[in-house]
Design a protein around this nucleic acid. Structure first.
Lengths: 249, 249
DNA sequence: CGCCATCTTGAGGTCTATCAATTTCAGTGG
DNA sequence: CCACTGAAATTGATAGACCTCAAGATGGCG
């Protein structure tokens, strides 16, 4: 059975695409390559204009500080286009790092322009970006406003939704160090916090596998709302006339 | 001297546009309206599909929590399209709030589709979004990793750049409460922190006016890098478009 | 077995929130 | 002209959350 393109999967959640458009998208994944965990696919400061699609594994954008600390700016899961954020800069602002062994497909930035020439693809691209903005703002709220326990609970729920793990069981191949760098916590405190969640009977963790034991309780605890993650059934273009709300005055 | 559209100004930083494209953009600003400070232009949960361009004043996206606390997710300055982030959701996730008296132009979501039909506009739109992502990730770093003093310094430097206030003097018409809700600090601690910056001789504040007295020291203190903000083109309002951005060819 | 990375657990210190009191100032009305 | 009011900012005291340092524990891998 041929592997369906992750990217196509993802984009068809945002728009109805024609055969030609799908072909264009699939071209992004012509060149799959393997990278070992820990590989820096793109170094901060480099002028590389390459983008990547992620096919398999976990990767992220990481920013390093003078004092040795770091911040994970963005976590990529299969189906996402990586480094889209850097389109506007001449120089990469941060590292693109493989957290696990990954398979990714590099492609030149010009491909994006080809996509933009198709209004429907441009629209879908726009929606993937706004979806990512939703993730980012939710993370701001998470980091700025929630104490560690709730923050961690929220993080796990978000992962569950992004991974489509209905049951609440999924693989989490990140070290606590990396998790801390995502959530703005020290690795020590990540350990303590996960321990607390475990002792509360809300989460089971072993061997890089997570099981969320009481999703309702976790949602209540963290104030998690799927809203910011859920994709609309399908956007305007195809949908049977959605009544446009009257303008508020 | 006729008022040039803020939006056009902004977009021409990202791409070279033809007359027709500029006309399309200007149409977004056909309907300027005034809203008093404190007005909620768009309520969370509403199904309004309207977007706005901001012509004058300060506005933001605000998220309210059950316990009464809130988080400012995004701060809009003149020239930005507001609520772009909500394009993908059926329901607004958060409030659009006028922090000061503002002038904004509502326009229907369909206009965005018209823009997307023009590859160059689609490209420019994409770049405004990636620029906003840059702002967001920088804020995540700020909130997650920097203690209050550095966080505040970084915030002020970012504002200076966004406002194009070369000299380091600009108006800051936000209450310390709102600033706290942006930075993840209590309003009390905002006061203390600004006081410390003042006593350090780095900042002067009075009457809603800010003067950054030692920009170099502030940059060192906060680890501020213009990189994430600088547009490939030129400093904001002053220069005509330069074709450095990824203009689709 | 020893080595290394990761995770766990404890103790002390720092930063920030919270509660509360005070000050400032613009607006209002006597 | 002066008291009164309410929003915003300042300042002090206390408590709690989280960080850092440090010492084990665990487990894969040579």
């Amino acid at each position: 059975m041929p592997i369906v393109s992750c990217i196509v999967d993802r984009f068809t959640q945002f728009a109805v695409l024609g055969a030609e458009e799908i072909a264009l998208l699939s071209e992004l994944e012509l060149d799959p390559r393997s990278y070992a965990a820990g590989t820096v696919l793109c170094k901060a400061g480099s002028t590389a204009t390459q983008l990547f699609t992620l096919v398999k594994g976990w990767a992220g954008i990481v920013r390093h500080f003078a004092d040795g600390r770091r911040q994970v700016l963005d976590l990529y899961l299969p189906g996402q286009i990586m480094r889209l954020r850097e389109l506007g800069s001449e120089q990469a602002q941060s590292d693109l790092l493989a957290f696990t062994d990954i398979v990714a497909c590099p492609f030149p930035r010009e491909r994006i322009d080809e996509l933009l020439a198709r209004p429907r693809l441009a629209g879908a691209l726009l929606l993937t970006l706004t979806a990512e903005q939703g993730l980012l703002t939710e993370r701001i709220t998470n980091v700025a406003r929630r104490p560690a326990l709730e923050r961690m609970a929220h993080f796990l729920l978000e992962l569950r939704t992004r991974l489509g793990a209905e049951t609440g069981a999924f693989e989490l191949p990140l070290t606590q160090d990396v998790i801390g760098d995502m959530l703005g916590l020290s690795s020590v405190h990540v350990s303590r916090t996960l321990g607390r969640l475990r002792r509360l009977g809300l989460v089971h963790m072993a061997d890089g596998q997570v099981r969320l034991l009481d999703i309702g309780a976790l949602e209540t605890l963290s104030g998690f709302q799927v809203g910011y993650l859920s994709r609309p059934g399908l956007p305007a273009q195809t949908a049977p006339a959605t009544p446009v709300a009257a303008a508020p005055q």
